[in-house]
Nucleic acid binder design. Structure first.
Length: 813
RNA sequence: GCCGAAGUGGCGGAAUGGCAGACGCGGCGGUCUCAAACACCGCUGGGCUCAAACCCGUGUGGGUUCGAAUCCCACCUUCGGCACCA
């Protein structure tokens, strides 16, 4: 009797061996075709089931590629800068560096338990000076290219995190990580000009990304075609023209008033003395509102008249200029021409304040000579529009814009919702922005030769939440690199998304002291062939990294237009109760516990077996029994031999070989499709079939060996430890993970006989066993011989017969 | 409100125009055992049944088709994203 399978001893033993042998190291000089598989790296903390759920199938896919003969790069590292470390420092007085590196050390151990095929020789830690030196270098290159700039803007301030955030990190008016309500503050900050690539970021040619992510990015970038139009301001001493963005220049004759955002710079200069108290009061009131209150769509529209008028450049109409908080200073020009007849928001506002409503299109179903009850956006022909009257709606836009361009009062344009990426953070634990403020020279970049700008070692945190960097004179005060006069370092650090925007490049050449990545390494490994990670990063990391890559391409550092050719988003693994895992709910499944109970292989497989990977769903701990049964069965098949007989050409042998080759075919197909749950079900079926064959009597040795080798090889990516152990025991050699993926023989996988459904009028009434290659005439003869069919036909002739070989035969009466 | 995804047994799910419910969990019955565990075998959508046969059945209602979980139309529900973006 063979021993029972002991996952713990076996797993630890092979993990140690693989690591000692650097089995998964991707060598630069390996001549085989490369395959770069990447799964999003974790930030430092604790490794949870979500990480396993993301990483295990990524590992399976990487292992599969390796067995298909690729030189696979599958690296791992740590996104180690960021707030958690600093919050721990503030709350518990620990040093953020020590906290971070202790976490990383623990996570390395947890990741090892997974048995994943990471190439640890290429590990990167974004908080290492060797790494963030290059993060700073990238900043300088972007600055040089005009893609990094400093500007004052309305920024999102998170009071809980004591820092500003990028727009992408604000969700429903709240901070994406702390959930605090963000405040609007006018601050001077560093930005990356991601908008310079807006148009290109909308194109997804040459990459296979999920429709969902493409839609989210497209939506976020928010391209809209329209025009700028300029209205003169009828205020003595003000020559500025009021510039508006509109998608409907063809409604310009219906502009009965203007609305500018309360923060618009022109407001102070055009407001009349009589209106000033009301305007000031309104501005004060809106500035007190949170973003959430202000953006609530169902609240009544409010606004105040400035007392000033603008002149419509098309018809000379004198229209009042209002301020209202439904116009956002951050979009377009922060000012609109209001056309209440054709825009519901303007209509609501006009109604509330008794402003004029003039339709400038007629409509088949609306009598435009009567007061409107609602705005309508698209009409038939222009009316009330002077020389444009009668212009069909389809031509209106182009004609009005052409006229505006002729007259010098406007031009066609494309506007984006996307705004530049604010990367300054008023925090300590990040890569310092390598800039120096000199009283004489202004803003001066730190010379590349002086990189990295190191974070000071000993820092103290206090309850103010202010970054300690602002309080360390010996760090802040420096000599200006240009004039050597007194100057101060920039004390803000970079958004951690900056660190992760280029990490995939660094894995290609992780220890290069001269460059972020050498040309040779970039050419060898980049871009990423298969990227996997969560969809929650759709408009953050996944958008930033595309921008970053394009900028790097334009600097000549990398080639090609996209950083990741294929992207797969796994779903979210939930607690057994169907809710998000959380300590407060008490539904957390801790991976370390699962591993100590069942072993890594079983936990890996159970995570993949719960359902389609992209859908996520509840983790089912009781279902583990099925996985364990299957792995034990596989163990028994590999360690308890059948009685052998030389019987290569018998029907039983043929059946076993058929099962083996069908399994190879189906598992390979499922592997390509990332359909890991169905893949495991096929392997279970094969194991059950093998067991029945073994227990039924003597088995042909060759066919058995073929079946067993296939079972182990096909299981290897999923359950790497048990597969290695069995492979070793059957003398397969070391290692199963560098062995060749089995090929199937279509001839052996082919069925000789097939069962087809016999339908009458589309309902299954009987079954026929036919030769696999059975033609229609023979199938029909067999069908008409069925007693069931004879009874139902009742002597009549079938009107029609549909035969789908191998599937069914349908008789229509 | 707009956009996207989804809705199938007691549960996770399979099948993307051709036999609905693969595989697994759970449940029921059995073999083994003094007994239990493990393991193995059988059954397991509902109705009507001793059983067979038959009928019903993939969110709801319609449609296309010889044939629909799958395609089309309308609606309901759930989840995700966006949301005064001019």
């Amino acid at each position: 009797m063979a021993d029972r399978y002991d996952p713990h001893a076996t797993e630890a033993r092979w993990q140690a061996r693989w690591e000692a042998d650097r089995l998964y190291h991707a060598a630069d000089d390996d001549p085989r075709p490369r395959w770069y598989a990447l799964t999003m790296f974790p930030s430092s903390g604790d490794l949870h089931t979500g990480h396993w759920y993301a990483m295990v199938p990524s590992d399976v896919a990487a292992r599969y590629r390796r067995m298909r003969g690729h030189n696979v790069l599958f690296p791992m590292g740590f996104d180690a800068f960021g707030l958690p470390a600093e919050n721990a420092a503030i709350k518990r007085g620990v040093d953020p560096r020590e906290w971070t590196y202790a976490n990383i050390e623990r996570m390395r151990g947890q990741l090892r338990l997974m048995g994943a095929s990471f190439d640890w020789d290429r590990e990167v830690v974004t908080s290492d000076p060797e790494y963030y030196k290059w993060t700073q270098w990238w900043f300088l290159q972007l600055y040089r290219k005009g893609l990094a700039y400093r500007a004052e803007a309305a920024a999102n301030w998170c009071p809980g995190c004591h820092t500003v955030l990028a727009n992408e990190q604000v969700v429903d008016g709240r901070c994406e990580r702390s959930d605090d309500i963000v405040e609007r503050r006018f601050l001077t900050q560093w930005f990356f000009k991601i908008t310079a690539y807006a148009e290109e970021l909308l194109r997804f040619e040459g990459i296979e990304w999920p429709e969902r992510i493409r839609a989210m990015q497209t939506n976020w970038i928010g391209r809209s075609e329209g025009a700028f139009l300029e209205f003169a301001v009828d205020v003595p001493g003000v020559d500025d023209r009021l510039k508006v963005f509109t998608t409907r220049p063809d409604t310009v004759y219906g502009a009965t008033f203007m609305v500018v955002a309360p923060e618009h710079p022109l407001v102070a200069r055009i407001t009349t003395d009589a209106q000033r108290p009301a305007v000031d009061a309104y501005i004060a009131q809106t500035s007190r509102q949170t973003e959430i209150e202000r953006l609530s769509t169902d609240k009544e529209k409010t606004g105040v008249f400035t007392g000033a008028y603008a002149i419509n450049p098309f018809n000379g109409a004198r229209v009042p200029i209002w301020i209202a908080d439904y116009v956002l200073v951050t979009y377009g020009t922060g000012a609109i021409m209001a056309v209440p007849a054709h825009d519901q928001r303007d209509f609501d506002f006009a109604r509330a304040y008794g402003l004029e409503i003039i339709p400038v299109f007629d409509h088949d179903d609306v009598d435009v000579t009567q007061p409107l009850t609602a705005a309508f956006s698209h009409g038939r022909r222009m009316v009330n529009s002077g020389p444009f009257d009668g212009t069909p709606a389809s031509e209106a836009f182009a004609r009005v814009v052409a006229f505006a361009e002729e007259q010098g009062v406007g031009s066609a344009t494309v506007n984006y919702r996307l705004r530049d990426w604010l990367i300054s953070r008023q925090r300590y634990w990040g890569a310092p922005i390598p800039m120096i403020h000199c009283d004489a020279c202004g803003i001066v970049p730190v010379p590349e030769s002086e990189l990295p700008v190191l974070l000071p070692d000993t820092v103290t945190f206090d309850a103010s939440g202010k970054s300690p960097l602002t309080r360390i004179p010996e760090w802040i005060d420096v000599a200006c690199p240009q004039c050597a006069g007194p100057a101060r370092r920039e004390s803000d650090t970079m958004d951690t998304f900056m660190c992760s925007s280029w990490y995939q490049m660094r894995y290609a050449d992780p220890h290069n002291p001269e460059r972020p990545v050498s040309r040779e390494a970039a050419a060898k490994w980049l871009p990423v062939d298969q990227y996997t990670g969560g969809a929650e990063h759709a408009v953050m990391h996944l958008l930033y990294t595309r921008f970053f890559w394009k900028a790097a391409r334009d600097m000549g550092v990398v080639e090609g237009d996209e950083p990741m050719l294929r992207l797969f988003n796994q779903g979210v693994i939930l607690g057994p109760d169907g809710n998000r895992m959380s300590k407060s709910r008490g539904n957390v499944v801790a991976p370390d516990d699962q591993v100590s109970q069942w072993g890594s292989d079983a936990f890996r497989c159970q995570l993949m077996f719960v359902g389609p990977w992209d859908q996520g769903g509840p983790y089912n701990p009781t279902g583990m029994a099925g996985i364990v049964r299957w792995l034990n069965r596989l163990w028994s098949l590999g360690t308890e031999e059948p009685r052998y007989v030389d019987d290569l050409h018998s029907e039983g042998t043929r059946a076993l070989r058929r099962a083996t080759h069908k399994t190879i075919r189906d598992v390979t197909e499922a592997m390509e499709a990332f359909s890991f749950n169905t893949l495991i079900s096929r392997l279970m079926e094969h194991a059950t079939a093998m067991q029945r064959v073994r227990d039924a009597g003597p088995v042909d040795g060759q066919a058995w060996d073929e079946a067993l080798r296939a079972a182990i090889l096909l299981t290897a990516p999923l359950a790497p430890h048990i597969a290695e152990e069995l492979w070793d025991r059957i003398g397969g050699g070391y290692s199963v993970h560098t062995a060749e993926w089995p090929a199937f023989d279509p001839e052996l996988a082919r069925d000789d006989e097939v069962e087809v459904a016999l339908q009458v009028n589309g309902k299954v009434r009987d079954r026929l066993v036919l030769p696999a290659e059975c033609g229609e005439a023979d199938a029909r003869t067999a069908a008409l011989a069925s007693p069931k069919v004879i009874a139902l036909l009742d002597g009549k002739e079938p009107r029609r017969v549909i035969y789908v070989p191998g599937r069914l035969l349908n008789i229509v009466l």
